[in-house]
Amino acid sequence: MSDADDFFSPLHIEHIDSYLPEVAGYLDLPAGYRFQIDGNNFEDVWFDPELLNA
């Protein structure tokens, strides 16, 4: 991960199935959860309470 302003590219939810179908199953995680996948069977899901303090 990087702190660069352009590290992440926004993607509208309507395009998820076309660009990142493997992400769709994570979008219904409860508020406060993060996930990271890499396409090589790496998966990490964790709760980050700081996300709820925004």
Rank of each mutant, 00 (worst) to 15 (best):
M1D: 09
M1H: 10
S2R: 04
D3I: 08
D3W: 09
D3L: 15
D3P: 01
D5S: 12
D5N: 10
F7M: 03
F7T: 02
F7Y: 05
F7A: 03
S9R: 15
P10K: 12
P10T: 10
L11N: 06
H12C: 10
H12T: 07
I13S: 07
I13Q: 12
I13P: 01
I13C: 08
E14I: 02
E14W: 04
E14Y: 04
E14V: 07
H15I: 01
I16L: 05
I16W: 00
S18W: 02
S18I: 09
S18E: 15
Y19T: 06
Y19L: 04
L20D: 00
L20H: 04
L20A: 12
P21W: 09
E22V: 04
V23D: 01
A24E: 12
A24F: 05
A24M: 10
A24N: 10
A24Q: 15
G25V: 10
G25K: 14
G25N: 13
D28F: 05
D28I: 03
L29G: 04
L29E: 05
L29A: 08
L29F: 03
P30M: 06
P30E: 12
A31V: 05
G32H: 06
R34F: 00
R34K: 15
R34D: 03
R34Q: 12
R34L: 01
F35G: 01
F35W: 03
Q36R: 15
Q36V: 08
I37Y: 00
D38Q: 10
G39V: 01
N40C: 10
N40A: 12
N41P: 01
N41V: 10
N41S: 14
F42Y: 13
F42V: 02
F42M: 02
F42C: 04
E43G: 07
D44W: 06
D44H: 14
V45K: 07
V45P: 00
W46K: 10
F47A: 10
F47P: 01
F47C: 11
D48F: 00
E50M: 13
E50D: 14
E50F: 07
L51K: 02
L51M: 09
L51Y: 04
L51A: 03
L52K: 11
L52H: 05
L52W: 04
L52P: 03
L52Q: 11
N53K: 15
N53H: 12
N53F: 09
A54E: 15
